[in-house]
Write a protein that binds this DNA or RNA. Structure first.
Length: 574
RNA sequence: GGACCAUUGGUGUAGCGGUUAACAUGUCUCCCUGUCACGGAGAAGAUCACGGGUUCGAUUCCCGUAUGGUCCGCCA
């Protein structure tokens, strides 16, 4: 098909040239004996002018047409279009294909709800914004290939049909036809394989890797997602973080021309939790958490008797507009986080107001006012209980108030590393010890001495990169000492049998000269979200699933035929 | 597993214990030589998600179900 160029490759410089363009009819404005057509291709829109006398087929929205004509300067340019100062005076219009009326308006300003857009994703993808998201995604990938290749990394593909490994996310399984009763697992991440590649002497590996986790979905979580997966040998934590920062810096520069200041801040996990109430704090705004335990531990309120932690955030200038209803909603939020409630205080007329004040002595009141440095009309949200829960609640409120009060400047980016994660965590309800990252995470050298006596005290060489409150990636230095690895399994309560069955081949491999190694994975989807300014992960995935894990377009997942089940040796339980 | 919110022409919304169910946009027909969110005239298009209940009467109130969204749990 004859096509001389794409629409937005034309500019005022091309005036007078004969061109042939192909695209979709985005809009037709029929003025009688003169017709204007907005022709859209992937590059953008250009206006076609069709004068009386030119033979024109019936043209409607989303028809595919080819236009021959001359580039001409417009008297009054359209500032909204990249090609707004020119138009094509058509000499010939050829209809290539017709289209039914589309169920959604193909425009960035479409009014269709997401569910409808997903059902007709192939039409939704025609919207310039959607194509922009995919462009950003592509650009991140290309920059990654370029940067890492230059740093002597090679991309290696690891299997999709792989062995189930315990710990971590629930896995997707694929039944084996040749081995009835056996299942492949889809990888939650290429973790084991990339470590084996280090043992295999590759030294520097990366992969734009598909990963699968059978957990419940969220606005920023898909079951089927992509990570930029990296593993290196012979780097210590600082060396590794520097290398990873280089990649992020390059991506921000290439994609949005933003200069990231290096090195990034390193925030210890403990501080992140205590000050921001999150291990992925959005540090573009303040609203920090304040430790109020000392001031309030002896107060007359029964709910604060013997609690592990009492903490508060101060929302500036919010007291007067906080109604009974808002206070009730805050209480419900607290219950969601497993706390009994939340204390709401207002600082009005130079004094604390609210039903809670009656529990406080005047010393406690003035202590709180001083500690929190309260100003007129400040709103104080106080919560007491298990520290992890208190911090989680206040961290969530901190973020939601920042959004509500517009404390976040648009187009700002705040990047940091959260480091020194605990090696293990205790489940809040059961008290069971699990690894916070994975069982191959290396404990910090200086904490090895606590491994026997108090494992929860041990910190690890683990790091997350946090951008604008999103966990954009994370990784660890790995254990390469077999003795430490065995100790880890022991603490996690794996029997020798478990270890052999679940990780046998992996543990064996460590006996043959394992290099010290480290790695991380960036969430490609989340990076794309951040760099294209959407807060919905589905926007940056061409064919995503909805919150129920269903693809509204194809209807997947689906039932399969009885003979297919028979092949697999599978019978369904009613 | 749990909480909250939503479901009304193709699309997106408004509405209300009794309506001819409103508006925008899209669609169709006609008119229009400079539009670019074109304009003008007209037309078609809705079992008000489904099931039950309350009521003289339910799209409206209540309960349940389904679907969708946001969150908690979960996501090494």
């Amino acid at each position: 098909m004859k096509r001389t160029c794409w629409n937005t490759e034309l500019s005022i410089k091309n005036v007078g040239q004969e061109v042939s363009l192909i695209g979709w009819v985005s809009k037709r404005r029929d003025l009688g004996s003169i017709v204007f057509i907005d022709l859209r291709d992937r590059s953008g829109i250009i206006q076609i002018m069709v004068k009386d006398g030119i033979k024109m087929p019936d043209i409607r929205n989303e028809y595919v047409i080819r236009v021959e004509g001359k580039v001409s300067k417009k008297d009054i340019p359209n500032k909204n279009l990249k090609t707004g100062d020119i138009e094509i005076i058509a000499s010939k219009i050829e209809l290539i294909n017709t289209a039914n009326t589309t169920p959604i308006i193909i425009d960035d300003k479409t009014d269709a709800l997401e569910d409808t857009r997903l059902k007709y994703r192939y039409l939704d993808l025609r919207r310039p914004m959607m194509q922009h998201y995919l462009d950003v995604r592509h650009l991140i990938k290309m920059t990654t290939h370029e940067y890492l290749s230059k740093e002597k990394f090679i991309e290696v593909e690891t299997p999709i049909l792989t062995l189930s490994t315990p710990e971590g996310a629930r896995e997707y399984f694929v039944p084996s036809r040749l081995h009835h009763g056996s299942f492949y697992a889809l990888p939650q991440s290429p973790q084991i394989f990339k470590q084996l590649l280090m043992i295999g002497g590759l030294e520097r590996y990366y992969q734009i890797a598909r990963c699968f986790r059978d957990e419940d979905l969220r606005a920023d979580r898909q079951p089927d997602f992509t990570q930029i997966d990296i593993e290196t040998s012979f780097l210590d934590q600082d060396e590794f973080l520097t290398l990873a920062e280089g990649l992020i810096e390059k991506i921000f520069k290439t994609v949005i021309n933003y200069d990231v200041k290096l090195p990034l801040r390193r925030l210890p996990y403990k501080e992140a939790i205590e000050v921001y109430g999150s291990d992925k704090p959005d540090t573009r705004f303040d609203l920090k958490l304040h430790d109020c335990l000392k001031v309030l531990k002896n107060c007359a309120f029964d709910g604060f008797k013997d609690v592990e932690d009492i903490r508060a955030i101060v929302v500036p200038n919010a007291a007067s507009e906080t109604s009974r209803k808002v206070i009730d909603e805050l209480g419900m939020e607290a219950k969601k986080f497993g706390l009994k409630g939340i204390v709401v205080l207002k600082f009005e007329g130079g004094a604390l107001q609210g039903s809670f004040v009656k529990f406080l002595s005047s010393e406690e009141q003035s202590g709180l006012i001083t500690l929190l440095n309260l100003k007129e009309n400040d709103l104080v949200l106080l919560s007491g209980g298990q520290k992890a829960r208190v911090c989680a609640l206040l961290g969530a409120l901190r973020t939601s108030y920042a959004r509500k009060l517009n404390l976040i400047k648009p187009n700002t980016y705040d990047l940091l590393w959260v480091v020194d994660f605990p090696l293990f965590e205790k489940e809040l309800d059961t008290g069971k010890i699990t690894s916070s990252h994975h069982p191959f995470t290396r404990p910090r050298d200086e904490d090895l001495k606590y491994l026997d006596s108090d494992p929860t005290k041990v910190l690890s060489y683990a790091y997350d990169i946090v951008i604008n409150g999103y966990e954009a990636g994370g990784g660890t230095l790995r254990i390469y000492d077999q003795k430490i690895q065995r100790k880890m399994f022991e603490i996690l309560g794996f029997s020798d049998d478990d270890i052999k069955r679940k990780f046998g081949f992996f543990i064996d491999a460590f006996q043959y000269g394992t290099p010290p190694h480290a790695g991380m994975a960036f969430g490609l989807d989340r990076l794309t979200m951040i760099l294209s300014g959407t807060d919905n992960i589905r926007d940056v995935i061409a064919f995503p699933k909805n919150l129920a894990g269903v693809c509204p377009m194809s209807g997947a997942p689906s039932t399969i035929e009885q003979n297919q089940l028979d092949d697999l040796g599978i019978a369904l339980v009613k």
